[in-house]
């Protein structure tokens, strides 16, 4: 099951021109899985591992024990896509008394889900991965919207059709998880250019 997922990922990344980055030699934390794209999360034996870049090299984080966390996402939707990438949006609320950082997101419908932000580069707005995730202060909300912060589904495994429900599992820096629902919507906008220089810069 897992190896199939990664085969799809590799293929999709070639298609969408995503640059593969070097993979850490040490994969002891997550035997068998390939940490090939930042943002990937995999949960094994009640521990969640996050594929992240450390000094330009992709490595699995140490396993975070899974617990429930009170974050909710309302008004969630995802842009239709047949292959490649798509953006997911909504309003995330931190219902806890502490600041929460969303460091990883997973979905059965994508090889990886990344946290993206929009930045100005060479006079144009481009999106790029937000390496340190989204931090939401206690009791506050974060709006994810086209042209702003958003979740990026990479390597879509099955076309996202209008009215489809997709479930996303948000993981916080402390291992907290919340599963939220988004609905597939026709949307013509939000076709931001993806700036991968941030990722390629991670090359040693």
């Amino acid at each position: 099951m897992r190896s199939k997922l990664f085969a799809t990922l590799a293929l999709t990344c070639l298609l969408c021109g995503f640059n593969l980055v070097p993979v850490a030699a040490d994969m002891t934390a997550m035997p068998g899985a390939k940490c090939s794209m930042p943002g990937m999360t995999v949960t094994v034996a009640k521990l969640t591992y996050l594929c992240q870049s450390k000094a330009g090299v992709l490595t699995w984080s140490t396993g975070l024990p899974v617990s429930k966390v009170a974050i909710t996402l309302t008004d969630g939707w995802v842009k239709l896509a047949t292959t490649g990438m798509s953006g997911a949006f909504g309003i995330v609320k931190n219902n806890t008394k502490n600041a929460v950082t969303i460091v990883g997101v997973a979905s059965a419908r994508a090889a990886a889900v990344q946290t993206h932000e929009m930045v100005m580069k060479n006079g144009a707005m481009v999106m790029q991965m937000k390496m340190d995730g989204f931090t939401i202060p206690a009791g506050k909300t974060l709006e994810l919207k086209p042209g702003g912060n958003h979740l990026m589904l990479m390597g879509i495994t099955k076309p996202i059709k209008a009215g489809d429900y997709l479930y996303l599992t948000l993981t916080t820096s402390t291992g907290g998880q919340a599963t939220v629902r988004v609905i597939g919507k026709v949307f013509a906008g939000g076709n931001e250019t993806y700036d991968t220089s941030n990722t390629t810069a991670m090359k040693p």
């Binding site: 059709k161 209008a162 009215g163 429900y165 609905i183 597939g184």
Partner: peptide, 12 residues
Amino acid sequence: ANLQSVLRLFTD
């Protein structure tokens, strides 16, 4: 499935 999608979208 498509009918269900229509109904979900309509409701939302």
